[in-house]
């Protein structure tokens, strides 16, 4: 599924990287623990997280993630949006909770980080 379709499912809006909406997303990781994302196979994934921090963006970059979606309508400070720009990782925000966002994506046949369902 492509990123722009996921944005519609999550009622999410782009803070950075809307032009990359055609990126293919292969799996979803949902966590507020950076190590969880770094332990699993996060390459080509979309990360759902409540952490609107620089480290969330850096960990996503290190893990090779393709996009980050912040839950519960979080809008990070400008420097974090800029960092997403530097790392060229689309950054979105959804009003949904982690549970509801994860559930919606699961219903759309998306898989977990290690391709689990």
């Amino acid at each position: 599924m492509i990123l722009s379709e996921i944005a519609v499912i999550l009622k999410a809006r782009f803070l950075f990287g809307e032009e990359m909406g055609a990126k293919e997303i292969f799996r979803i990781g949902a966590s507020d623990l950076m190590s969880d994302l770094l332990t699993a196979d996060s390459a080509g994934s979309l990360i759902l997280t409540g952490l609107a921090t620089q480290q969330a963006v850096r960990a996503a970059s290190i893990a090779g993630a393709s996009a980050i979606v912040l839950i519960r309508g979080k809008i990070p400070p400008r420097e974090i949006i800029d960092l997403a720009g530097e790392e060229n990782i689309p950054l979105l925000t959804t009003p949904l909770s982690m549970f509801v966002a994860s559930g919606r994506l699961y219903m759309h046949e998306l898989k977990g980080l290690n391709n689990g369902r």
Binding site: M34, S35, D36, T53, Q55
Partner: peptide, 15 residues
Amino acid sequence: EMGFGAGMGLPNMKK
């Protein structure tokens, strides 16, 4: 609270 200290770091490095 910042998303660290999960106790995964060292084992993940070894892996």
